[in-house]
Design a binder for these strands. Sequence first.
DNA 1: TTGTATGCGTTATCAA
DNA 2: TTGATAACGCATACAA
Lengths: 360, 360
Amino acid sequence: MVVFFMATIREIAELAEVSRGTVDRVLNNRGYVKPDTKKKIQALLQELHYQPNRNARALSIQKKNFTIAYIYRATEINVFFDDVITGLKAKVAELSEHRISLLVKRIKPDDTPAFIRTMNKMQKAGIDGFIITAFNNEKIRKKTNELVDQGFPVIACNVDLAGTQRLAFVGCNLYRSGYIAGGLLSITVGGRANIGIVTSGTPELVDRIRGFTDAIHTNHPDIHIKEIVTTEEDNSKTLSGTKAMMKKNPGIRMIFSETVAVHGVCRALKDLGVDKKVKVICFDDMPSIRQLMLEGYVSAIVFQNPFWQGYRSFELLWDYLLNRRAPEHEFNYSITEIRIRESIIEDAKEVHPAKFTVPT
Amino acid sequence: MVVFFMATIREIAELAEVSRGTVDRVLNNRGYVKPDTKKKIQALLQELHYQPNRNARALSIQKKNFTIAYIYRATEINVFFDDVITGLKAKVAELSEHRISLLVKRIKPDDTPAFIRTMNKMQKAGIDGFIITAFNNEKIRKKTNELVDQGFPVIACNVDLAGTQRLAFVGCNLYRSGYIAGGLLSITVGGRANIGIVTSGTPELVDRIRGFTDAIHTNHPDIHIKEIVTTEEDNSKTLSGTKAMMKKNPGIRMIFSETVAVHGVCRALKDLGVDKKVKVICFDDMPSIRQLMLEGYVSAIVFQNPFWQGYRSFELLWDYLLNRRAPEHEFNYSITEIRIRESIIEDAKEVHPAKFTVPT
DNA sequence: TTGTATGCGTTATCAA
DNA sequence: TTGATAACGCATACAA
């Protein structure tokens, strides 16, 4: 084993025969350094694999105030993001040695102008970094790149801003989550059934549907997708669309549904009197969907760990802010977890192993 | 919002009208402090909720050498613990500012004397902390308590040492993992089937079987457990036992199997020519079991995140070593993850969302 | 352009 | 028993 000792600024300075101040100027591109000495120092930094000491840096910087903004677009009743925010706050709480303010701002869906306005306002208010959940459209991409160009670090959380210079994406691997849902559905119906899909049709979730259909087509030839209903996140459309689908295809035994739609889907099945005979697979773990699962309407959910998404987003942003370390990976996927009834039943959750293990 | 500023040693010292050295002596029970001043300082520490600054401490302490021992009992071919060790190492790598040596020692199962000997040797070798995976028997419990009494922090990893003074347990919630497997099995067979159980019968895993049977009995009245085969981790017993069970109960459609046994179980089913008709649910994700799943013998696995168990064990131990912070929870359970074929197929894993998303 | 001095909060050593 | 002070590595204000 080769033990490798980290070089410090002081050591670099001694080797370069300059003062630590000069090394610091090179490190942080502050200027006021003669090109020659700059080169000499940079060579040494390279050679000795200089890495700033995180503890020293944190200690020295800790009186500074940091303000991070989280801007997300969602409806008022969307509890999904509560968990994301809890994750953000958990990371802030962990960083208790520092003075961090977290600004959280929700914007109504489809109000891109308001979203941009908020970004502008935050930018002027002296925010240190952004975490953003926005639909990926031209205007927001442009504004994001503008922020990045001005030196603001931006993390895309939950919805990616592909094509921008954001530091990283933290969120669900949509394709994979759909792919897994496909396999899970197949298991549930024993590999042979007619099924239906109910989707909002929003472009952000298109990969999920693609993952699902790919899994079915590749691995499960006896599963037949009879119809795809598009709801546009409209409740009455979901209801009528599901009903129409079921009437047209009475043989459907299972429905693959997206998060928001699942309530309408179950409602429709209930109205038709086929609830609990036709099962549903959907996404995300929130109280209302839990209830549907406990009651037997939903047989499984695919969970994307919103808490982790918030937690990790802040973690990556913070590591950049404090240590200037860019995320190791551009794409940071949350675990795609399968949850069934037994995963969430409280009596099993709270059970203590010691209660059952009698030491011998 | 109430902003709360942390008190520092210096501030405490000023308020108590002593020097920081004295406060330090009180904080670390070094003695040489007059009882009166000690009381005065302690009162202030309480009142101001003094918490040492982690960054300062880390900085000040970082030249120290730490040595942590991980002792686990397993057979040579048990790759499960490779992931645990990778998790341990990942945490060590993260703590790159510190000088940490990780000593890993595997002990053969059933060799309690060797296990104790190793603990003794490590103890004398100046180890700073222990992470242990041992069967929970009287001798090891006694030795563990001895270590703890002498000030060594001990984390029980993967197998708990209930009834000892170990700092914490990190591992799988066995009862819950069995409970979830029960629900999963029911989904797989459509809620109605005769099934069998193949278990090693080791007392450490008894809670898992209990969780499984509880789930079946409570929620799935049409699932009938026809037989429980006990293998004692013996391959030939697994083979013959499974075959005997299947001959006696040809109606069995699904088998709930423990980690080690699953290979023998699948082998038996193959020999009997009922492979892929009779499905298996088992535990842990390792290459050989993955293979069985990809080939269609195993329909799902319940995964207990060994990497996380190692990572988290080290994290808790380190927080104690560096900051004297005892773990917040005595029981630290890993996520019990359901994995199916689609969870591990590579082509979906490597898919890049950007490849599928056309920004609009 | 460059160097020096001080502070961040703790630990540890030495002096009183 | 206590107090003073030098590290730890980095950031920054200030001096040269």
